[in-house]
Design a protein around this nucleic acid. Structure first.
Lengths: 249, 249
DNA sequence: CGTCCTATTGACTGTATTCAAGATACGTGG
DNA sequence: CCACGTATCTTGAATACAGTCAATAGGACG
């Protein structure tokens, strides 16, 4: 196995908002049904370099303002990155799914708080080590840059969502984005597992929990989706779903 | 003059939303009253490397989807980076002021459209050249990374604004942010020149132009600001202004 | 089986948008 | 330099949409 990864893999055009520094190599492997996550984990320089941690649902991994000693990668479960305010307001900036990296955001201190959405397993890497690798390996560096670029681009989609999309569009785009991140094309019959609750979705989309519920109920009512469980969504009318996300419905 | 720049300069905690890849060295020099912009422009490896261009107000510099051949730096005037949609919706992602870099966002194609807000002067650098410098100079690389990090962090503030702040808070935060970017602390008597019109502010804040006007009128009415001209703001009650931005008013 | 937590639905309220009318500023040409 | 025409900005009134408050329903877990 080579010590490098191709950093020029294609960027998918839609439904990839958020800041988690994602690794499309691993997304690709998920899409193709590989059980294990690939990507940096397979970069020889990083192999065995990290510590595996279990994080309980709801627990904080690091806080906005903490000294940024470590970077992380999600192995199992899900993590949310958010801005918390003294008065309780919360904006979720991204969800990190298996394969995603986080904690690269700021040179000194974390700019975000990271919490486990569900029970999660993460690998923790020393940032000193990561920085060293960056100095030593041009390919590793390129990869890092590409991931940062990806993060910026995702953020821009998210901004558009919050600033200019209606509630229906936001919620539908969110579902399509999550489908995409789980390697589903978003066709009829595709099933989506939501690792997060309604409040988390609301805080990601800049809405209240009630508004999210109502939007989902509307989608159920008009036959775009079914919801066998509160965290399971099945696409029943992909065309309608996409039209709704684009505002043509 | 050294070929490097200190990439570990402090990051200011507030009012720096947006994605323009800003150079705090130059921001610092503006703040201290230096007439000319410093930063990368003074990095010997970049000196004389770019082409100076004049861009008329309203003209497009590059479009979302264009091949990303160049990176830019604003010398005079202002540039907006935005996402445009077929149905006319627009989300401004950042304003670039003198000293700011833009067009670093994506490896292949631009992910945003760049347009001149006012008549502007920019320097255009070949991305191939920039990439070469990145390969050759570790310090240049660090600087680039730091700027990308900055961009991410700014984006997060912007997301919070759009997702969780009220109209009053957004508009007031925007004014304080612009003051900050013009090197003003935001004290009574400080004057702010807005290079952009109301519609641009609205598209940055995810609002309508009418809502922005009303919020500004409210601030005038309660004595927080005065507006000698439509693009000039004078702070008349800094305490109230800050309280409003934080939601305590 | 009961408790707790999350999700859903309903009724009402409040805020930002929409539509529409005026006012101000700006650039152009006389 | 002024007059005009166009852009932009501001204000007003009515509407629509998402938020709030409150009650009910559903699930997970002991």
């Amino acid at each position: 196995m080579s010590a490098t990864l191709d950093a020029t893999h294609s960027i998918r055009p839609r439904y990839i908002p958020g800041y988690a520094i994602r690794d499309d190599v691993s997304a690709e492997s998920r899409r193709k049904g590989f059980a294990d996550v690939e990507g940096w984990g397979n970069v020889s320089v990083l192999q065995n370099a990290g510590t595996t941690l279990k994080v309980e649902r709801g627990k904080t991994i690091f806080r906005d303002g903490d000294l940024a000693e470590f970077s992380y990668r999600v192995i199992g479960g899900a993590v949310r990155l958010c801005k918390l305010f003294p008065d309780g307001r919360r904006q979720i900036v991204d969800f990190c799914l298996p394969g995603d990296f986080f904690g690269f955001g700021s040179p000194d201190e974390y700019a975000l708080t990271a919490e486990a959405v569900s029970d999660a397993t993460v690998i923790r890497y020393s940032r000193k080590h990561i920085e060293h690798l960056g100095r030593v390996s041009p390919d590793f560096r390129d990869h890092l840059m590409a991931l940062l670029h990806r993060g910026l681009s995702s953020a821009q989609n998210h901004l558009f969502m919050l600033g200019r999309q209606t509630v229906k569009e936001r919620v539908t785009s969110f579902l399509l984005m999550m489908l995409d991140r789980q390697g589903r094309a978003g066709e009829n019959g595709d099933r989506l597992d939501l690792p997060m609750g309604r409040q988390d979705i609301a805080d990601y989309l800049g809405l209240t929990i009630e508004t999210v519920c109502r939007a989902l109920s509307d989608l159920k009512r008009n036959g775009a989706i079914k919801a066998p469980g509160t965290r399971e969504i099945v696409v029943t009318n992909a065309t309608l779903l996409r039209a709704t996300a684009e505002g043509d419905a």
